[in-house]
Design a protein around this nucleic acid. Structure first.
Length: 280
DNA sequence: AACCAGGTCTCGA
DNA sequence: TCGAGACCTGGT
């Protein structure tokens, strides 16, 4: 299919989704229980295992990226980051998978998050293709309670089971969640053990279409301090970012996040002599 | 080998 | 309402 402005590598490598892996030029993943493969060549996207409509919805091709860039380019710094990662799009994730995944993501790092989620899928999900598992439903997680230890989730295991139980019983209603506005959704989400300000913002942004949500993790906090001189409590920094970047603040956040990736970070003048602190 | 990570919880002021 | 500590585990 032909795509609007889009960069598949930047999008799948930006740390918003955890279940894609690259093999050669193909990306492999499971979305809403379907195994799919993707390959990009210029503005052509080769899709295997899903309809074009589904792909367009998933990658938010309905977002006008140029309009969003124009809107969030409030200063030179963000403009240059956008320029570096042009085509990166937010992804429209499934609400249950996204929320459960970000509960596991707390106080960890992307490689480990991927492993935890992979092992949860292997332990509780269905094998839909050889080696490819679906993300388990709340019921599937509750059924195999005894196996949780082998997923190495640490203290997040109780949060995940508790959340699965709330969703399964109907105490927490994902359909009701989807009808709420940004503030209401965040407030509702925070009633779940394991979901605080940051995870609630991730869920709002990545699965509830609240593009003004601006999750502030360590990287974003660092960027906001270094670039804008903003520090302090979560809500102080996040609300500053929402005011500064406007209604698409979540997009600005994702570009700053990928730019702060330590493995991509351009090293500034480490070759300058005389600054090493070699021992006596 | 320390330090750190897509933070949250609890508790005390 | 806010700040301080504790916290499973594994990556770097």
């Amino acid at each position: 299919m032909r795509t609007p402005l889009f960069d598949l590598d930047h999008t799948l490598d930006s740390g918003q989704v955890f279940r894609w892996r690259r093999e050669g030029e193909w990306w492999h993943g499971v979305v809403r229980g379907r195994y799919m493969r993707l390959r990009q060549d210029g503005d052509r996207l080769e899709v295997d295992g899903a309809s074009e409509d589904m792909v367009a919805h998933y990658f938010r091709f309905d977002d006008d990226l140029e309009e969003i860039y124009a809107d969030i380019s409030k200063d030179e710094r963000i403009a240059s980051v956008i320029d570096r990662f042009r085509g990166l799009r937010l992804i429209r994730q499934d609400i249950w998978e996204c929320s459960a995944s970000y509960i596991l993501a707390s106080y960890s790092n992307v490689p480990r998050i991927k492993k935890m989620i992979d092992s949860v899928c292997r332990t509780y999900g269905q094998e839909i293709e050889e080696g490819a598992f679906s993300f388990p439903t709340p019921e599937e997680i509750l059924e195999g309670e005894a196996d949780i230890a082998c997923c190495r989730l640490g203290y997040r295991a109780d949060w995940l089971r508790g959340y699965a139980s709330m969703v399964y019983s109907g105490e927490f209603d994902l359909y009701e969640l989807a009808t709420k506005d940004y503030r209401g959704a965040v407030e509702y989400l925070k009633s779940v053990k394991g979901i605080g300000d940051k995870v609630a913002d991730c869920i709002a942004l990545f699965s509830l279409d609240h593009l003004e949500a601006c999750p502030v993790d360590v990287r974003i906090a660092r960027a906001m301090r270094d670039i804008y001189g903003v520090t302090g409590s979560y809500n102080k920094v996040a609300s500053y970012a929402r005011r500064h970047f406007g209604r698409f603040a979540g997009y600005a956040q994702e570009y700053l996040y990928i730019a702060e990736d330590p493995s991509r970070k351009v090293r500034s003048c480490s070759c300058t002599p005389g600054t090493r602190s070699s021992g006596p």
